[in-house]
Every structure is written in C-alpha cells, then in structure tokens.
Design a protein around this nucleic acid. Structure first.
Length: 526
DNA sequence: AGCACA
C-alpha cells in the first residue's frame, strides 16, 4: 500500500528549503535570468540551470530560508505567475537544502575528461576517431575511453503517422538544424527522420518554450540532434589538462572524420571520475591498457568473429605490423610516401615494400598494436591521391618484427639513425614528396608547392585538382578551424585547395566535381 | 510541469 510519504517528490507541499526547484523553464535559461527572478525576495547565492533530461529545470538557492519562503508565498497568492521570457515558471521548495554544484567540482582538474561532441552527425563519430583525436594532438597514451551516447531509444519518440511511425529525436537541444518545409526526410544520426510540421511545432513549443506567435513566424523549423558524450581517462591530471586545453571548443579535423559526417565540435570539462571501469571492449568502450578485456556480446557476430566498430567490420587478429596493398596505382608509391602517410598515426619503425601478384604491397611496422589499429581503421579504403588513385587496403600482418636487411628505396628501418649524408638516393632526388610535410622533408612552403609539370602526358587539362592527402597534424598545436596553418605544417594544402577543416571528404581525395580527370604527375622523379 | 549523471 502506497502512502503519500512513500513518494516525497510528488507531495503537494514540501518542507521549506532555501533552495527552490523551478520547472517549465524556457530552453537554455540563464543564470542571470534566475537571479533576476529571485532578486526581489532576497539574495540569490547560487543557481543551477539546465537541469533534468529536458534541460528545462533549475534551482535557486537563497542566502536565507525566509527569502525562499517569501518568494514561494508571493507567487502562491499572486495572480501573475512567475515568468521568464514570458513563460510561466513553476516554483516549489526543493527537497534538498543546498545546491550541490558539481560544476565547481567538475572545474577541478582530474585525469578524466567529459567530452561532448556536438554536431549533426556526432553520434556517428566512432571511438576510433576519438582515439585519433588523441593521437593527433597529444601523442600521449590514453588509458581508457568510454563512449556512452545516450541510449538512442531514450532520445527518440515514436509517433504514429499515416501507415508508418515517425521517430523524432528530442531532448538535449544542444544543436539546432534548420530544415525546410514539412515532411521532408532529413538524414540524421544514421536514421531518416520524417518530420511533420505540427509535430515539430509541438516539440518546439515544448523544448524551446516559444509561444505560438513566435512559432508561427517561423518559415523554417528546427530539429534537434543529441550530442555524443565520452569519458576519456588519461594517465594523469597533467595529460588530461593539456588535452582539455588543446581540444576544448575545437572541431574534430575534417580528415579524421568519415566523409558523411559533418562538423563536430568538442566541449570538454573535467569529470569527477578518476578511474573508468571499462568492462568490455566494444564500439562504445575501450580500455587501451587492457587488450584482453572481454568483448561485449553485442560486438560478436554469428560466426563468432569479433566485430568492433559501428561499421561492423570484422576484426582480424590485431598486429603492430600492417600489410598494405595498393590498388589503382596510377602513380608510383614510394617508401617516403608510405612513411608520410603512416607516420600520421605514430612512429613508423620499419617499412618493407615488395611486389605481389603484379601489385605493390608493403609491410608497415609500428611499435604497438594500438597505433596500427588506428592507422588501419582510418586509412582502410582511402586513397593516397585525389581521384581514387593508389587506394590503400590494409590488413594485419602476422609479423611482429620486420627484419630489414638493407635500407634502400624498397625497405627501411627507421629505428636506425640515418645520417643525412648517406640517405638513400630516392630521398635526395625528392625535395618534396607527394605529400608535403613528410617527416624528414624540408619544411613545406605553400608558395613553393611544385605544380603539375608543364609538359607530359598526364598534364591536367582542367583546374589543378591534384590534392595530396592531408596528414593529421601530429607534432604541432591544433589550430582553430579557418586559421592558416603554420608554414611547413603537415596537412598544408596547395594554393587553391581547402583548409584542413573545410575540405569535403578530404580523406577520400575525390575530385569535388566527381570527374576523373587525368591527374597531375606527382612532383617527383622516378 | 515534478528534483541535480555521465
């Protein structure tokens, strides 16, 4: 038998508290608005806004209990309800006696970061991509990582609509996307949203607190996209701090994202956690310190193969050595080119190239499996050159340590210090590799980028579209989108091409117009 | 419109 007191949160009256609970607030109500509302009744000493699943609740804490009582009493008898931005706000005593602002505790530095990834397709950002972001900036060991976007069903309401159900994302209105007329199909988070105008009106009304008059003036409407969040644990607070400083507010570089994913912005705060307990390796969680962690049942397919990653790709036994085969090799692929490409993910120890079945293959050795995994996940299927040329196919080798007998233009042991004077001939003949910014290459200067050869069978007929693969900028600080890369920065693009964060699908290096025009010859002799 | 996550 349920008594009234068994559900204290629904009691008609609450015992007085100097903390008031506010609900039905307009979306993104600010602290200033809360203080403004409470000010007539006393001193507001603390607030907490954007509380609850809908982010439309808040707390106000007064210096004195009597001030809170004054506010409640006033609005209990007033004919005018409490309002913020013209929206009625409901007040009651909180069932707590003070605001616990974990925001302040979250401001204290820790070794675990809470990363919010905002963007229309943020939910499709893979754990590998986040790991890449780490590798890209920090080159430091990330101990464990746990992605937990919300349970997607929590974020979706199903609405009967004609013969089908529509599902509409709501809550967490961190990102607004303006859509056109009603009933269009909007690709969103891997789903297609069929949005009906009136449904969206209701959602808008509920979520944004707009009045009908405001709504009717809309010519386009919003749909909401929930962000992805991740907890990322670092070995120590200093590492976490440097990651936070480097990444907070930045966008994930264009080339670290699959082509179909739009811009994704990182918002980073400290988490109160100190140690994430990652129980499974899955597409949502990974403990990089423990490769033998059990794999989540959801990540194992019917054949018993491990599938890790949202794309459901099967995992071969991982190795620190990758086997690369190159398809559609219109250009000669040099050792240096491979070194540049694969160095983006970590130290490349050794490379061995060889011909097999009439095609070129190469073994690339990293010091550790994790780096190889990231490189494979990122580069698989991507082309070294614009236009679909020199497409990489990667698998794990059974090798763990390549035995390089001689350093030449087909094999190299980079762990052996190279004296500049006795570099292999191929290096000396290539002042600029196919990808600017190659490790060991002279600093790249965009103005000196060698254009297509003025003569030769492959000379480009149209605008020069040859685009070297953009390289993750591993060894210099991240720049905000749109900023000019420093001279000599890896990833610097030839004049006329797009900056790293703006380019469409830069990893694929396809011609923007889709034509497969004759490519320019890579600017090196063979 | 109903009490604070990560």
């Amino acid at each position: 038998m349920a008594s009234v007191s068994s559900q204290p949160q629904f009691r008609y009256t609450q015992p007085p508290s100097k903390v008031l609970h506010l609900r039905n607030l307009p979306w993104e109500c600010t602290e200033e608005e809360l203080i403004e509302l409470g000010k007539p009744f006393g001193k507001v000493v603390n607030t907490k806004c954007n509380v609850g699943a809908n982010k439309n609740q808040a707390f106000i804490e007064f210096a004195d209990l009597n001030q809170a009582i004054a506010m409640i009493s006033y609005y209990a008898s007033s004919s005018e309800p409490a309002q913020i931005r013209g929206k009625t706000v409901y007040l009651q005593y909180s069932n707590r006696q003070e605001i616990v602002n974990n925001k302040t505790t979250a401001d204290t530095a820790g070794n675990v970061l809470l990363v919010t990834i905002e963007g229309n397709e943020a939910r499709q950002v893979s754990i590998e991509c986040l790991h890449l972001v780490r590798a890209w900036i920090l080159d430091q060991e990330c101990w464990s990582i746990s992605l937990f976007g919300f349970n997607i069903m929590d974020q979706i309401v199903w609405i009967p609509f004609g013969d089908e159900f529509l599902f509409v994302m709501f809550l967490w209105c961190l990102q607004k996307q303006y859509c056109n007329a009603s009933k269009e199909v909007v690709p969103l988070g891997g789903f297609f949203l069929h949005l009906d105008l009136c449904i969206r009106l209701q959602l808008l009304k509920r979520q944004l607190g707009f009045r009908q008059s405001t709504l009717s003036s809309f010519t386009s409407l919003c749909c909401f996209v929930s962000p992805l969040q991740a907890l990322i644990q670092f070995s120590d607070t200093e590492t976490a701090s440097s990651a936070k400083n480097a990444l907070d507010g930045r966008s994930i570089p264009r080339y670290l994202l699959p082509e179909h994913i739009g811009p994704c912005t990182l918002r980073i705060t400290y988490s109160a956690h100190t140690d994430l307990s990652v129980k499974f390796q899955s597409h949502r969680s990974r403990d990089y310190t423990n490769p033998y962690l059990p794999v989540a049942p959801s990540a194992i397919d019917a054949t018993g193969q491990l599938t890790v990653g949202v794309d459901g790709k099967k995992l071969e036994p991982e190795s620190n050595v990758l086997l690369a085969s190159i398809e559609n090799m219109q250009y000669a692929v040099t050792l240096d080119a491979l070194h540049t490409v694969f160095s983006a993910f970590g130290v490349v120890q050794k490379i061995a190239m060889f011909d097999k079945n009439g095609g070129l293959q190469a073994l690339i050795q990293y010091p550790d499996v994790q780096t190889a995994v990231v490189a494979k996940e990122t580069l698989e299927g991507h082309c070294i050159y614009d236009g679909g040329f020199c497409k990489l196919h990667l698998s794990y080798s059974r090798h763990t340590d390549l035995s390089i007998k001689v350093n030449n233009d087909r094999s190299r042991d980079y762990t052996i210090p190279l004296h500049g004077a006795i570099q292999p001939p191929s290096v000396g003949h290539q002042p600029t590799g196919p990808m600017p910014g190659a490790a060991g290459a002279p600093p790249y200067n965009g103005a000196q980028y060698p254009g297509p050869p003025s003569s030769g069978g492959w000379a480009a007929a149209g605008p020069h579209q040859h685009m070297p693969m953009q390289m993750p900028m591993q060894n210099y600080p991240y720049m905000p989108p749109g900023a000019a890369p420093p001279p000599g920065a890896p990833g610097t693009m030839p004049p006329g091409s797009m900056p790293p964060n703006m380019g469409p699908g830069s990893m694929h290096m396809q011609n923007p117009n889709g034509q497969s025009q004759p490519p320019a010859i890579p600017p090196y002799s063979q």
